[in-house]
Amino acid sequence: MQYELIAKRYIKSLMESCDQASLENLAALLSVVSKEAYGNEKFNLIMNSNGVSSNAKCQLVLDMVASANSSTANNLVKLLAENGRLLLIPALAEQLTREIARAKRTFTGRIYSNNVVDQASVETIARDLGTKMGATISLSYVASDFDGVRVEVDDLNVEINFSKSRLNAQMVEHILKAI
């Protein structure tokens, strides 16, 4: 959480100073570095070590982004290194990807159910929900023990539940009120 707040400041500056294509390339680059490097335990030991100079850490990350030949990426890495914030890169990657999706109005979500939901139904739900929300939504099915269907789109703060137990309880309540 603390990294997210700091990352938002960097992302705001990037969004103001870069065009859409540069932002998308930077997001892809940071995501790859985040997954490949920051997902590696040995790399994290080096980055957290007090025995390794900040210049060496900076050069290590610069070597990872060198293939992109991006002055924006290089300058961002140097700025993060100067401020001792190279550990922010995974949070920056995630936050930048979210901001680009928000700007494009494209979101991803999940459908949870203990019954298998076929791909056609997933696509129909995504299309209808996207129409309702004024966005492009892609959903993926996740098997779970939820007794019904739950749709979540985190970046839109949307959660829709339909559970069999809740439906049964509401039917019993309605019948008792009618009697």
Rank of each mutant, 00 (worst) to 15 (best):
R110T: 10
A126Y: 07
F146S: 07
V65K: 10
K57Y: 06
M133N: 03
M47K: 01
L167W: 01
R105Y: 06
I125Y: 02
L92V: 04
N168K: 11
S67W: 07
H174L: 15
K12L: 08
N55H: 08
Q119E: 15
Y112L: 15
S13L: 12
E123K: 15
L80N: 06
T97S: 15
Y141H: 05
A81R: 09
S49Y: 06
L176Q: 11
L29S: 12
I160T: 03
N25C: 05
A169V: 01
I175L: 11
D128M: 08
G109P: 05
M15R: 13
A66R: 14
N115H: 11
E173L: 11
D154N: 10
L60A: 12
S31M: 10
V52K: 08
L87V: 10
E99P: 00
S70D: 06
A91Q: 05
L45C: 07
Q59F: 03
E16S: 13
V122K: 05
I46Q: 01
N69L: 01
E152K: 06
G84P: 06
L87Y: 12
T124H: 08
P90R: 05
Q59G: 02
T131Y: 04
G39C: 02
V32Y: 08
L167D: 09
N74S: 11
N168C: 03
G84H: 02
R166K: 13
S22G: 09
V61A: 02
N48C: 09
I11F: 02
N114I: 02
R150A: 08
L92C: 05
N75Q: 09
L30Y: 04
L80G: 03
R105K: 15
L29M: 15
L5W: 06
A37Q: 13
S34I: 07
S165K: 15
K42N: 11
K8D: 14
E41L: 08
L14R: 06
T131K: 15
R85Q: 12
A37L: 12
R98D: 10
S54A: 11
S13T: 11
I11D: 01
E99K: 10
A101V: 01
Q95C: 05
K42V: 11
V151E: 04
N40E: 12
E82D: 13
P90E: 06
M15Y: 04
F43T: 08
G148T: 09
R102V: 10
T124R: 14
I89W: 04
Q2G: 00
I125E: 01
F162Y: 10
Q2P: 00
E173S: 14
N114D: 12
S17K: 14
R150D: 04
R9Q: 14
L92D: 06
E41K: 14
I175E: 06
G130C: 09
L45E: 14
S165A: 15
R105M: 13
I89E: 05
A143T: 09
A169C: 03
S67I: 10
E36D: 13
E82C: 04
R127V: 01
I175N: 03
S34R: 07
M64S: 08
F107C: 07
S17F: 09
L79T: 14
V122L: 10
D147R: 12
N40L: 03
D145C: 01
R166N: 13
A66Y: 10
N83P: 00
